[in-house]
């Protein structure tokens, strides 16, 4: 006797399909990134993916879960890619691997594995590493660095000295440091005039990376894998607070466009705050989650000591997600008028 319950018809959907589409959506951003800083990014993607799958396999074995079913669900690869894209592209291999293993083992499996993690694993990896290895996490390739693939591999694998070429910073970090050093003498407009670093909007080449993530994110939205709520609220909060402060004192606060197109804003908007497991699930909850993450990210980014604030902002909002969901339950069919 078969006991399979209705519905007998099922939509052609699976977790691995969801995860594959997320990975596909990252491709435009990755392409722009690789064009900007070189193939090192791709190497980091491979390192992170291998580390994630290995850690996943070990944890699944330890937890007595079926390996094939969960290794092929693609969730570990998504986490790995997000880590590889947020870490400095020429970071030593063990740093990326450590972050990834920590994300999979601690942030994911110790909390119960797929679907159970209260915190975004990639952001846990970023936060852990930036607190533990601040110097390495701040070493970005100098802008316009031309380095052959083999040299990049040597640096990542630690076979070559970490040369001065790596003393660069992200445009976001460069801006903050310059403003701090300038101590009121230098204004944002002068800094942004340096097109070598800042390009036309926010950082030479970085605008294209941000645009790549934007395109991928819009595709995910069009495919209905993410809803508009969290990304829009995240971006709106960023624009609101950066715009207000920029209008208040344009000399010390960069304009909203700079903030939207630099750092992890676009990646965060479409690939981080949209994480369904650790984020909010109700429509209003997603708006609050996105807006809260945007505000906090700006505050950490501009007033805090770290190069970017998206990771900490998202982790703080992850903490609040359950209570936000509880308080924002939508009204159901037929009960919309009840108070």
């Amino acid at each position: 006797m078969m006991t399979a319950p209705a519905p007998f018809l099922l939509k052609d959907a699976s977790v691995s399909r969801v995860m594959t589409q997320v990975c596909l959506a990252l491709v435009p951003g990755i392409a722009a990134y690789a064009w900007l800083v070189g193939p090192a990014v791709l190497i980091q993607l491979v390192i992170a993916s291998l580390a994630a799958l290995l850690a996943e396999a070990v944890m699944l074995r330890l937890r007595g879960k079926p390996l094939a079913m969960f290794l092929s669900d693609g969730s570990a690869v998504v986490t790995a890619w997000l880590i590889a894209l947020t870490f400095p592209p020429l970071a030593p291999w063990w740093l990326v691997a450590t972050g990834t293993v920590f994300a999979i083992v601690v942030a994911k499996h110790l909390y119960g594995g797929l679907g159970q993690n209260p915190f975004n694993p990639a952001m846990v990896a970023f936060a852990t590493c930036i607190v533990s290895f601040p110097a390495l996490m701040a070493q970005w390739p100098s802008v316009g660095l031309q380095m052959p693939l083999l040299d990049q591999i040597d640096i990542i694998l630690g076979l070559a000295p970490r040369v001065d070429a790596l003393s660069g910073a992200t445009p976001l970090d460069a801006m903050k440091t310059a403003l701090k050093l300038g101590d009121g003498e230098i204004d944002v407009a002068h800094l942004l005039a340096n097109q070598d670093i800042y390009g036309n909007f926010a950082g030479r080449g970085w605008e294209f990376v941000a645009a790549g993530y934007l395109i991928g994110g819009l595709w995910l939205w069009q495919r209905r894998l993410i809803s508009w709520h969290a990304p829009l609220a995240f971006i709106a909060a960023f624009v609101a607070i950066s715009g207000a402060l920029w209008l208040y004192h344009p000399a010390t606060f960069a304009n909203p466009l700079f903030h939207l197109l630099s750092g992890g804003t676009m990646l965060g908007a479409f690939f981080i705050v949209t994480d369904p497991v650790s984020g909010c699930t109700t429509p209003r909850g997603k708006l609050i989650f996105g807006a809260g993450a945007g505000l906090l990210a700006y505050i950490v980014r501009v007033f805090g000591g770290y190069p970017d604030g998206v990771a900490f902002a998202v982790l703080l909002m992850n903490l609040s997600a359950p209570v936000i969901d509880l308080l924002t339950q939508p009204r159901i069919f037929g009960m919309k008028d009840e108070s």
Binding site: V18, G115, L225, V277, T281, Q329, I332, G334
Partner: peptide, 19 residues
């Protein structure tokens, strides 16, 4: 059956707007 990833597809599909 896999674990729930809270993707919310079910909530979008529910005609009674449940979660």
């Amino acid at each position: 059956e896999m674990p729930c990833i809270r993707c919310g597809a079910c909530a979008d599909a529910c005609p009674h707007e449940l979660q």
